[in-house]
Simulated scan of single mutants.
Amino acid sequence: MNESSPDDLAALEAELAEAERSVVRRVDPGSTAMPVAVAVLGVLIALMLPWTGDVAGWEILAGTANFGLLPRLFTVTAVLFGVLGSAVALAGRHWAAAWTCAVGCGFSVVNGVWAIWSRQVNVPQGGTGPGIGLVLAVIAMVVLAASWVKISTRRG
């Protein structure tokens, strides 16, 4: 009969504890991964569409068009959290990355609503209103924020 030594049992217990910690730090997006992927695609498509006047979102992101701080801040947060963060969180499935995306996408939604508001306020002074791309990007970020909150609050 094979008897285990106390050292072997301690090593096995440590290995099991590490496996448990690894599982607890991971998330399973499940069926919510599809809305995340579609919303990321929506953000990328929105960057090609007009955000204000004839200016596309990618032009605001690149800095070639200056339409104020709020639309620029929104483009940066939408790409950073909505596109790049979502890709990293879906690929890595780490709980911390999912929460970072949830918070970052929520922050980006607030920025997007402010960006739409800033475009509406500037219309009477000769500015241009919000374009379809800006509105689509905000809607996609709302979907991403809700999806990441759902994913990050359900562990395992």
Rank of each mutant, 00 (worst) to 15 (best):
N2L: 15
E3Y: 11
S4I: 07
S5M: 10
P6R: 11
P6A: 14
D8M: 13
A11N: 10
E13V: 11
A14H: 04
L16A: 14
L16K: 14
L16Y: 09
A19N: 04
E20N: 13
E20G: 00
E20F: 07
S22Q: 09
S22D: 12
V23N: 09
V23W: 08
V24F: 01
R25G: 05
R25I: 00
D28T: 11
D28S: 10
P29E: 04
T32R: 12
A33I: 01
M34G: 00
A39L: 01
A39H: 00
A39E: 03
A39M: 05
A39N: 01
L41W: 04
G42K: 03
G42E: 02
I45M: 03
A46C: 04
A46K: 00
L47E: 10
M48F: 08
L49R: 08
W51F: 12
T52Q: 08
G53K: 03
G53I: 12
D54K: 14
V55E: 03
V55K: 03
A56T: 15
G57A: 03
G57T: 07
G57K: 03
W58F: 15
I60P: 01
I60E: 09
A62G: 15
A65K: 01
N66E: 13
N66S: 12
N66C: 04
G68H: 07
G68L: 00
L69N: 10
L69F: 14
L70K: 05
P71H: 12
L73Y: 14
F74Y: 14
T75Y: 05
T75R: 08
A78F: 13
A78D: 05
L80N: 04
F81R: 05
F81S: 05
G82M: 10
G82P: 09
V83W: 05
A89Y: 12
A89W: 06
L90A: 07
G92R: 07
R93P: 06
A96K: 12
A97Q: 13
A97G: 02
C101W: 03
C101M: 06
C101V: 15
G104N: 07
G104R: 11
G104M: 05
G104C: 01
C105R: 05
C105G: 05
C105Y: 01
G106A: 00
F107I: 11
S108W: 08
V109A: 10
N111C: 15
G112C: 12
G112P: 14
G112D: 06
W114M: 14
W114G: 15
A115Q: 06
A115L: 06
I116Y: 04
S118C: 02
R119P: 06
Q120A: 09
V123Y: 05
P124H: 06
P124W: 01
Q125A: 15
G126V: 00
G126Y: 02
G126Q: 04
G126F: 01
G127M: 04
G127H: 02
T128K: 03
G129Y: 02
P130Y: 10
G131V: 06
G133W: 12
L134Q: 11
V135M: 13
L136C: 06
A137G: 14
A137V: 02
V138S: 01
V138K: 01
I139E: 03
A140K: 03
A140W: 05
A140F: 04
M141E: 13
M141I: 08
L144D: 00
L144A: 02
L144K: 02
L144E: 02
A145F: 08
A145P: 13
A146I: 08
A146S: 13
V149D: 06
V149C: 15
V149S: 12
K150E: 08
S152H: 09
R155Y: 09
G156P: 10
